[in-house]
Write a protein that binds this DNA or RNA. Structure first.
Lengths: 228, 228
DNA sequence: CAACGAATCAATTGGGCAATTGAATGATTG
DNA sequence: CAATCATTCAATTGCCCAATTGATTCGTTG
């Protein structure tokens, strides 16, 4: 009976340890980036803008918690999530909770989007609804290597940085839906804002690849379509 | 552009703050208990076996994070989750992640269950399958007040502590399924073990009320059946 | 109004975690 | 084999958080 108590406190301790692993802004950002696909320490440090040694140490921390694993490839070390679906799910649950509980997050998001009044945001269900009514073009505005690591089936890769140079490829007779890493990623917002300034019909999909993974949606990798 | 970076780091900070709120064994236990229903500080301190002032302070912490709210009722303060579904979902995601990543948790769970070899554990899907094949009796072995705050529609309330005195009420021609607070709660394990020793056909349902809430299952409260 | 009980506050202590820096490892390239 | 680059390790500092204790607030009851 007493042993039951020990078991419970042990489980709570381990759960807390796991939660602590992601209870840090930098590590959250790293995990969020890794939800997009495997990356080297260099890429992670650069994309998150944090010092090099810092990134490495936080990755060690995450590795201790078995959330990520690193594999040496040549002179680089490539990190990946041990389990995409479970981790993306955890992150998504955290984001849902924050959106529900944290008024400041909602306020910040609203404040941010107010600078881009013309940017319409829709969720996955609404997007599917619209796709039934008219043909859409879906573009993935994340960096090319993240697209390569997994993307929406049928979406084009059109990284935000290349967008201005590749406008000629885009159709003007169809509406364009842009997505990126998730609800708090700014890539798609910028893309849609720019496209609308250029006279395109465009809107933003709120969810990103992480959310789809957590929901078990289909993901395309190269030629094949998988379910994670 | 720079402002976008600020927005992102701000969001990560807030997410980390929220995660920190549950990244503590005691607070996790409190939240887990509150997933069963509203409780006073006294009840929470007693059930978790932690000092009184400690419980109060941790509850303050959770209240800062807007996860819980307290309401004065007479000389007692009753705490409840601000949003059952979202919080239970977060907790469930954390438990799934731990079950996936933490070998020690799995080992501990297995080690614990080995003392109760005869206790069969089934998940929700399997239970529904069996219910189609034969009539079952579903019993809720949590304390009566947790049953009152929300339970499986059609289940009987039969707290573990009363079980030995109320064996006469149970049928011997039907199998009995017992559930409690969740996968890491020990009440149902003890109940099933005891019932089998007494010659009943009994097994344990792994999921608890928290998991159902997170999945949007129906919950009965008094006479009405709700969806959370 | 006094006494009691529930809950919170205040203040101290100790321990652990994060940022930073510089050095060390380990693989690749010329 | 030396040089270079990516990554990790080690060690320092400072800071925040948790546990504990005792005092305080607030409502209820006699």
């Amino acid at each position: 009976m007493d042993e039951a108590r020990h078991f419970q406190t042990f489980v709570y301790e381990r759960l807390a340890r796991l939660a602590s692993a992601v209870a840090h802004p930098r590590r959250l950002e790293l995990v969020d980036l890794l939800c997009q696909g495997p990356m080297t320490v260099e890429q992670l440090a650069q994309k998150s803008g944090m010092p090099f040694a810092s990134a490495s140490q936080h990755l060690q921390h995450l590795r201790m918690a078995r959330l990520v694993e690193g594999e040496r490839q040549g002179s680089y070390v490539c990190y990946r999530l041990v389990d995409d679906a479970v981790t993306c799910d955890l992150l998504a649950a955290l984001q849902r909770a924050a959106a529900r509980y944290d008024a400041e997050v909602r306020a910040a998001a609203q404040g941010f989007l107010q600078h881009y009044r013309d940017v319409e945001s829709v969720d996955l269900a609404t997007l599917r609804e619209r796709m039934r009514q008219e043909p859409l073009l879906l573009i993935d505005v994340r960096p090319a290597e993240e697209y390569a690591a997994g993307h929406w089936p049928g979406a084009w890769s059109l990284p935000l940085e290349d967008l201005a140079n590749r406008l000629a490829e885009l159709p003007r007779d169809r509406a364009i839906a842009a997505y990126c890493r998730g609800p708090y990623c700014v890539l798609a917002v910028h893309a849609v804002n720019f496209l609308r300034q250029q006279g395109f019909r465009a809107f933003r999909l709120i969810e990103g690849v992480g959310e789809w993974r957590s929901r078990g949606e289909m993901i395309a990798v190269g030629d094949e379509i998988r379910q994670t």
